[in-house]
Simulated scan of single mutants.
Amino acid sequence: MRQSDVAPHLRQHLVPVDGKPNVRAMVAPPTPRALPAGSGSPALAHAASQALGRLIGAMEGWINPDILTRTLVRREAVQSSQIEGTKTDLDELLTYEATWSADGLPPDVRTTQHYVEALQYGLDAVRSGGRAALDCTLVRQIHAMLMEHENVPKGTYRDIQAWIGTGRIEDASFVPAPPADIDACMRDLERNMLRYARREDEQGELTVLAQMAIAHAQFETIHPFNDGNGRTGRILMPLILAAEGLPPLYLSGMLMRNRSGYYSALKQVQLQGKWGPWIDMTYRAVLEAAGECVSLADDLRAIGRAWSDATSGYRSHSVVRRLPELLIEQPVVTANTVAALLDVSLVAASKGINELMTIGILKAKDQRTWGRSFHASEIIDRLNKAPATPR
């Protein structure tokens, strides 16, 4: 990172790096509490806000608003982890959770499962404690859960100089703050954005969508941990929504499909102080995620109705009639999990699974590779389908 790469008004935040006289690091500027003039398209901001409002309205008519919760959290874990290079897909994660065996699965399936645990932990914390729960302590706890099986410090800020790039620090595309400055930067982020509340002397109030965009970019600029910063930072966005009692939209799918643009937009914030591209990308991701959530709920209900018709000839209390509804939330099962979910014998669970395989609702994976797991492929295929591009 050369000084010439940094906009003149940001150079005051450059500091020397110990032992590297020709290298400067960027101490994150104070967290902005208002968007700079011209940052983000007002039309996109309005459209994203309307899309979120439509989702809230649609959810009010859902018999079970949590029908998507389990699978969407897991899809987010897969997609956010894939941005960092993991190979686990949704089917593999669900298989691991159903069998708790990694045999035949990618080695990083455990890493993705830790993301599920960390995201769910954060959601539970902010849903019970609101914005007050969204603090540096929670961020460190989430990081520790994310990195449980990684050979890096967990839940503690880095004590070494980091840089973005694969070569020498002198050739880095970005050099974040030295370790001594991290705590102050994180406390500033906590005070001004994670726990954001409008002040009496402020003319306007940041929308919650702008808040989560700023929080993520600021966190990535601080880069407080040795590893796992991207995943931790992406978790902050749905947590801010959930802390306000809003649906926690998951944006990693859009960011993954536009990875180079995502990194470029963050770099423009970090080096040029240009927030527009990143703010607009966030709005587009919200548009996509909100629309996809409504579309997905409609499609899953349609699948459920088709399954109900296909099993209508069976007794109402049979496994064949009762299990399909649960498969929408948990599309990979074993005979043991079915027996536990429906409180039936293992024999009854196995018989019901076989009937559902005959009907075509369940499919068995290769026993030698996967273990005896059964997959509702229609659900998984729909979850893996790329959303329609919002207009």
Rank of each mutant, 00 (worst) to 15 (best):
M1Y: 09
V17C: 12
V23C: 13
V27T: 12
P30W: 10
T31A: 15
P36H: 11
S39M: 03
P42R: 08
A45E: 08
Q50F: 12
I56K: 13
G61I: 04
L68G: 14
E76I: 14
V78M: 02
S81C: 15
G85T: 13
K87M: 12
D91P: 02
E92T: 11
E92K: 12
L93G: 07
L94Q: 08
V109L: 09
R110W: 07
T112K: 04
T112V: 15
Q113C: 04
A125V: 07
V126I: 09
V126G: 04
G130T: 02
G130K: 06
R131V: 09
A132F: 11
T137Y: 01
L138Y: 05
L138P: 00
V139S: 02
Q141I: 08
Q141L: 13
Q141A: 05
L146V: 06
E148V: 03
T156F: 09
Q161M: 14
P176T: 11
A177D: 02
A184F: 14
R191T: 12
N192I: 04
E205D: 14
A215I: 11
H216A: 12
G230A: 07
P247F: 03
L249V: 04
Y250M: 12
Y250N: 00
S252W: 04
S252Q: 03
M254K: 00
K267Y: 03
Q268F: 07
Q272C: 08
G273N: 00
W275Q: 01
G276D: 04
D280K: 06
L296F: 04
R301A: 08
G304L: 08
G304E: 15
W307I: 00
W307H: 00
A310M: 06
S316Y: 01
H317F: 05
R321Q: 14
L323V: 00
E325M: 03
E325H: 03
P331T: 05
A335L: 03
A339Y: 01
A340G: 11
D343Y: 04
V344I: 09
K351Q: 13
M357A: 10
I361C: 01
A364D: 10
K365V: 05
K365D: 14
Q367T: 13
W370S: 07
W370I: 04
R382C: 13
A386Q: 15
T389K: 15
